[in-house]
Every structure is written in structure tokens, then in C-alpha cells.
Simulated scan of single mutants.
Amino acid sequence: MKFRSLAIIGFIIAVILFISCKTHFETTKSDYKAVVSTANFNHGKNLVFSICAGCHYNRGLKKLAGNPMDDVPGIAGKVYSANLTQSKTNGIAPKYTDAQLKYLLKTGISRDGRFMSYMLRPNMADEDINDIIVFLRSDDPAVSAADTTVGLTHYSFIGKAYLGFKADPASYRSNVKRPSDNDPVALGRYLVDNVGCYHCHSKSLKSLNSINPEQTKGYLAGGATLKGEQGSEIAASNITPDKNTGIGNYTKADFRRALKDGRSPTRTLRPPMEKFDHLTDKEVDAIYAYLMTVPPKYHAVKHI
């Protein structure tokens, strides 16, 4: 019996050591500094509110101060999105160098070597990352210091084990360029990737392929279950151009209205679907142009 107990303790210690090794990685030694201008700030604000705000914008505080991540199963622990404000006690931005922020977005690796699976955007253009950093460093009210603690993340043993087994940082890609506005399909594909449309509108948040998004299971065919208002469950829509179960019958105007005003041809869209009113009309039209090239998939998603 004593030997068995020691064996169990040894196994637990081995698992803990494995998890620790799998979730801590080398960080950057770069001395990169963001280039600041008014144009960089304005574009960065649009990017942050299109890409980051869905998780990080706290409507009560009207700041990017973080929120409970209710879509994370309770068995994994309690998880909160990070405070992106200028708070020196709770915020990320004052604690990170520009190079560390860029590395985090590119690879998912934080300044202390932890892997943060939902942060990485390996295919994001360097110029867009530059502008996001410029905005996060600014004096905009949305990023002014919010010292109020929304909550502290605490993973359970099961949550840590899952992160350990799933930890897969992206390789750092340099000199990535944003597609030209004159190539709407390429720009739309880039935006679907980096705005994160495919995160929610595929089969599951647990099976995303951040390097090659189009290889994600059920890519854009919907079905992922998300938390809506008052904890209700919402199934994400099929946004492939299937005419029966997707958006194949949407006109460009229909799609623009859905994305920017929250109204589809048949219903009013509900949280967690945000209004993407910080995207330009050209960007929304580019997303539409790309989605119309995606292979249509018949997948009926029931909307409650």
C-alpha cells in the first residue's frame, strides 16, 4: 500500500513537471520599438476594437480592463481576459516592452514564457501589430488606467494539464505584409484570420488551427457553442456560401448590415456576436468577397 501511494505521488509530480515544461518557453530578446504617428494610432484603435475588444472590453468600466471568460469550462478553473489598460498594478501594457507585446501576439508566448493559446496571431502583418501597440500605449480613454481588478485567472489542475498537452506556440514570422486593399479576396482572408471570425464560426474553439486557419475543423460552417446573455448557450452561424444553411443568399449590403449593424436578413444578431463598426466598408466588403470563395458547406445550425 505504501509503495502504491509513493507511485501515485511520483506520477503526480511527474505530470506537474511535464506541464511546467510544456507551458514555459523562450521569450524574445529583440529591441523592437513601435513607430508612432496619428495614422498609426487611428488604425490601431480600429484594429483593437475589431480584434481584441470582444474579450477585453469591459462594458461596465468602458475600458479594455478584461472580463470573465465564460466560454472556458468551469472544470478548467476561472479565467479572465487580461487588463490591457495603462494600469501599473493590473495592466499588461506597462509591464511589457514593445518587442514582448509583438512576440506575444505572434507566438502566444508571454514575457515570462507562459503560453497563452488565445492570444496568438501568427499571420498578422507587422504593420498592424505596430499600430495595435501604438494604441495600447496611448492616452485614449479605453486604455487609461483601470486599477479595478475584474478577476484573477486561476486554472485548476485539469485546466493546467489541458494547457500543457495543448501548448503549441507558433513560430515567430517576421516581415509579414498586410494584403493590398486592391485584392479584396486576399484582404478578406487575412481579416477572417486575424479578426478571428473562424474562431467562433467553426466547429469548436478547442480545435483551431492558428497557422493554417482553413484547416480548422468545420471551418466557417458554424456550430461552436458560446455563452450568450445571462449564460444562455448560443450556436455560431454557418457563414460559408451555402444557400440553404449559410450566407449564400446574402447580398453585399446584407452582409455589411449584419456585420456593422447586427441585423441579418432574417433576425437580429445577439451577443456574443459584436457589431464590427470599427471595420471600414472596404474591409467588410473584402470579408464578404472572401467568404463567397469558400467552399459551401451544408450545416444547419439551430438558433434558439
Rank of each mutant, 00 (worst) to 15 (best):
V284M: 10
T293L: 02
S20Y: 12
G54S: 14
G77D: 09
Y80C: 09
A286M: 01
P184M: 05
P122E: 02
I8S: 05
S174P: 06
D140W: 07
F3K: 15
P179L: 03
F157K: 00
F25N: 12
V192F: 08
D31S: 15
N130R: 04
R137S: 10
K243R: 13
F165N: 00
G54N: 10
G44L: 02
P73C: 04
A170I: 13
N244V: 14
L220Q: 02
A253G: 01
L191K: 09
I247N: 00
S30G: 01
Q100N: 05
A253N: 13
S110H: 06
D112T: 13
L187E: 01
N182A: 15
A235W: 01
K62P: 01
T268I: 14
L136K: 00
N182K: 15
R114S: 11
T85Q: 03
N123A: 13
R4H: 12
G60Y: 03
K227N: 11
G113I: 13
P213I: 13
G188C: 08
F276Y: 15
T23R: 07
S144N: 14
T153H: 06
N40D: 14
K63L: 05
H278Q: 13
A221P: 02
C52R: 08
I132H: 02
R267I: 04
F276A: 03
T149H: 00
N67V: 07
S232R: 14
A53P: 07
D242Q: 05
H201W: 10
L226K: 10
N46M: 11
A224M: 10
R137Q: 14
I9D: 00
S204H: 02
Q230H: 15
C197L: 09
N130I: 06
S237V: 07
H201D: 08
K45Q: 13
G164M: 08
K166I: 08
L191I: 14
S37R: 12
R114C: 00
A236D: 05
A65R: 00
I304W: 04
G66C: 10
F135M: 08
S264V: 08
T153A: 06
V134G: 08
K102W: 01
Y290K: 03
V284S: 09
V35R: 04
F49A: 06
S237D: 06
R263N: 09
Y288N: 03
F25R: 13
I51H: 10
L291S: 05
Y103F: 15
H43F: 11
T240R: 06
D285W: 02
